[in-house]
Simulated scan of single mutants.
Amino acid sequence: MSETLTPLPQGALSGKTALVTGSSRGIGADTVRYFAQAGANVVINYRNKAPRAEKLAAELRELGVEALVVGADLTDLESVQAMFAEVERAFGRLDVLVLNASGGMESGMAEDYALTLNRDAQVNVLETALPVLGDGSRVVFVTSHQAHFIRTTPTMPEYEPVALSKRAGEDALRERIPELAEKGIGFVVVSGDMIEGTITATLLERANPGAIAARREDAGKLYNVAEFAAEVARAAIDPVPADNTRLVGDTESFGQE
């Protein structure tokens, strides 16, 4: 159970506000839960599952923090602008922004949907958040080893379009590091191996039966949702690595010792 993990010191984020995109379930939900455990007021963002987001918010308010629930489609700029306007009205500023929401393997989407969500939307969210991100704040971008290392290590054909789009998003965000640094905003990419229990892993397993077991055997261990979310949460308060990158799990398969 994720509730048994408390990766951040109690009170480490007291008086701070954190927003995690795609936080009504999965990695996003556990990340926002860890922030609330550490005393942060939180913004739970969802695309179309309001009841699930509201249920999580009610749970986190029991911890004595404020929890704002905001629906927004990250590929719709007006929707994103409305979300941050609501954040500013409620809290005045934002101290932690976790860019967690991603996708591209969903059926029935436009051919360029993965790039629209994983690159363009991520940049637009960051751009729109800048007025409420102050000196000392932190931006965390969540990705996978399969995407982070896609330029040097091939991945499963089923995942390649998503991996390339997420790497494009990472590159576009990294271009903003000097500007963010000037404003006193730290930026960290958190890259993890395949995470057991995520929607992406489930879809990959469906498209390529045995993929999860094969990767687990190669890596020796795969993180679960709660464990990986703990690393994402820590990236929000730990010192920013020199290369702005936090690698989680085995990397030997990707040419990294």
Results as ranks from 00 to 15, higher is better:
residue 1 M to L: 12
residue 2 S to V: 10
residue 5 L to Q: 13
residue 8 L to S: 03
residue 9 P to S: 11
residue 9 P to M: 10
residue 10 Q to C: 11
residue 16 K to E: 05
residue 17 T to R: 11
residue 18 A to N: 05
residue 19 L to T: 02
residue 23 S to H: 03
residue 23 S to R: 00
residue 35 F to Q: 07
residue 38 A to W: 08
residue 38 A to M: 15
residue 39 G to W: 12
residue 40 A to R: 10
residue 48 N to I: 07
residue 48 N to W: 00
residue 50 A to G: 00
residue 50 A to P: 07
residue 54 E to S: 13
residue 54 E to H: 05
residue 55 K to F: 01
residue 62 E to I: 03
residue 66 E to S: 09
residue 67 A to Y: 09
residue 70 V to G: 03
residue 70 V to H: 04
residue 73 D to S: 14
residue 78 E to D: 14
residue 81 Q to R: 15
residue 86 E to M: 14
residue 86 E to K: 15
residue 93 R to C: 03
residue 96 V to Q: 12
residue 96 V to N: 10
residue 112 D to N: 15
residue 120 D to V: 13
residue 121 A to L: 07
residue 128 T to H: 06
residue 132 V to H: 07
residue 135 D to V: 09
residue 140 V to S: 04
residue 142 V to Q: 02
residue 153 T to F: 05
residue 162 V to F: 13
residue 166 K to N: 13
residue 168 A to E: 11
residue 181 A to R: 15
residue 185 I to V: 04
residue 192 G to N: 05
residue 192 G to L: 01
residue 202 T to R: 15
residue 209 P to D: 00
residue 211 A to S: 09
residue 212 I to V: 12
residue 212 I to R: 09
residue 213 A to Y: 02
residue 213 A to T: 09
residue 213 A to G: 12
residue 216 R to G: 03
residue 216 R to T: 00
residue 219 A to H: 09
residue 223 Y to N: 11
residue 223 Y to S: 09
residue 224 N to K: 13
residue 240 V to D: 03
residue 241 P to G: 06
residue 242 A to E: 11
residue 242 A to P: 03
residue 243 D to Y: 15
residue 244 N to H: 14
residue 246 R to Y: 07
residue 247 L to I: 14
residue 251 T to R: 15
residue 252 E to T: 15
residue 255 G to P: 01
residue 256 Q to F: 12
residue 257 E to H: 13
